[in-house]
Simulated scan of single mutants.
Amino acid sequence: MPIPALLVLEDGRVFRGESYGAEGETFGEAVFNTGMTGYQETLTDPSYHRQVVVMTSPHIGNTGVNDEDLESSRIWVAGYVVRDPARRPSNWRSVRSLDEELRAQDVVGISGIDTRALTRHLRERGAMRCAISSVERDPEALLARVLASGEMTGSELSGEVSTDATYVVPAHAGPWGEKRFTVAALDLGIKTMTPYRMAERGIEVHVLPATASLDDVLAVSPDGLFFSNGPGDPAATTDQVELLRGALAQGLPYFGICFGNQLFGRALGFGTYKLKYGHRGINQPVMDRTTRKVEVTAHNHGFAVDAPLDHDTETPYGLASVSHVCLNDDVVEGLELRAPAAEGGGLKAFSVQYHPEAAAGPHDAAYLFDRFTALMAGDL
């Protein structure tokens, strides 16, 4: 017998469906993901910490769950919303069903609701707090608890998802045959595939906790510094911004993705702001303004950098400019820091707002890891 479940948004909208995954109650920020594939990578992305993810693709779970496509050691979403869960998985790599995995990790979800209507509501009203419950029958009582729950704005969350201790991902032999560079990577919610993409290019990656200091970074004698993706409000994350400013002042080559792009922007003196409903999915069009090429990219962000699109900005570290822009809404999707023209105008640091590690696809932006190696080699 199906167990009834409620989804209540903070503006009072109610959706009724059936319990999916673990029974119980959960709270978080309701956001939607437009990807038609890659739900396992989405669930295990630490950037979704404290968020209830609505899948716009109606049929979820058909390929089950395997042990190879995890992007971290656990599921991070606060709750999961699907329309039509698969009755049974069908894939040669599957070892268990998605419903079983959600239950095993105590992730509360809901199925059987009109996810199209919910997505349209979030697009019109914006991402907002919500709750899913299979134990509460009174929507008004659940709404009261939603309104008492925490908001994403002002939340510093990277420390809750970061590694506790430094670990090393060794360089792969690959086409270079040996290690080429050493990178200090600050784990703000890093995905497993990211250091792997660097390692396969001959980079030894030292993954450091979010609490690492500049001295900790310099202790590994890095050729470059990397800031990962992660959850939370960049305006509430200050220590890492100061670390980055110190690294830039010393001329350490830098590459950041997603949250690392937002913190780079703040280090350069730009503001950040919360998007109405964010970008989440694997089908977002972005133009690289340095090459004029358009990439289809993977996104997961609810905040963005407020930087001018029409001119460079002088900073204490060089000239900053917007290198990438979203073609849907002109949101800043990348930044570059270059030396002044009088000093040759060479690239010193760069970042992108999306996920070039391509888990779960697409692969259009893989060149950015090559750009990072070229930066450390002094070729840019």
Score class of each variant (00 low, 15 high):
4 P>Y: 01
8 V>H: 03
9 L>Q: 09
20 Y>P: 00
20 Y>A: 00
22 A>T: 05
24 G>Y: 03
29 E>Q: 13
31 V>N: 15
33 N>S: 06
48 Y>S: 06
55 M>P: 04
60 I>Y: 01
68 E>V: 15
69 D>C: 08
70 L>E: 14
70 L>D: 13
73 S>F: 07
73 S>C: 06
74 R>Y: 04
77 V>A: 14
79 G>P: 00
84 D>E: 12
86 A>Q: 09
86 A>E: 02
89 P>R: 11
90 S>W: 07
93 R>A: 09
99 D>R: 15
99 D>N: 12
102 L>W: 02
106 D>R: 12
107 V>D: 02
109 G>Y: 00
113 I>P: 00
116 R>G: 08
117 A>S: 15
118 L>M: 15
126 G>C: 10
126 G>Q: 14
140 E>G: 04
142 L>Q: 04
145 R>L: 01
147 L>N: 10
151 E>T: 14
160 E>W: 05
164 D>T: 14
168 V>G: 15
170 P>V: 13
180 R>E: 04
183 V>P: 02
184 A>K: 11
193 M>Q: 15
196 Y>M: 14
203 I>N: 08
204 E>V: 03
207 V>I: 15
207 V>Q: 12
210 A>R: 06
211 T>G: 02
212 A>Y: 03
221 S>V: 13
226 F>A: 06
227 F>G: 01
229 N>C: 05
232 G>T: 06
236 A>C: 10
240 Q>P: 04
241 V>L: 10
242 E>R: 15
243 L>M: 14
249 A>D: 07
251 G>M: 10
252 L>A: 11
254 Y>D: 02
255 F>T: 06
256 G>C: 03
259 F>R: 11
260 G>W: 05
265 G>L: 04
265 G>S: 11
265 G>V: 09
266 R>N: 02
266 R>G: 05
268 L>I: 11
271 G>M: 13
272 T>F: 12
275 L>F: 06
277 Y>H: 15
280 R>S: 11
280 R>W: 08
281 G>S: 08
282 I>F: 08
283 N>Q: 10
285 P>V: 08
286 V>H: 10
291 T>P: 07
292 R>W: 11
293 K>S: 07
302 G>L: 13
307 A>Q: 12
308 P>L: 13
308 P>N: 14
309 L>E: 13
310 D>P: 05
313 T>P: 00
314 E>L: 03
316 P>G: 10
322 V>Y: 02
325 V>D: 11
326 C>G: 10
328 N>P: 01
330 D>L: 09
331 V>S: 05
332 V>N: 14
334 G>M: 07
338 R>L: 00
342 A>W: 00
342 A>Q: 04
343 E>W: 00
344 G>F: 00
347 L>E: 01
347 L>V: 05
358 A>S: 03
360 A>H: 09
362 P>W: 03
366 A>F: 01
367 Y>S: 03
370 D>F: 00
375 L>D: 09
375 L>F: 06
375 L>N: 06
380 L>A: 11
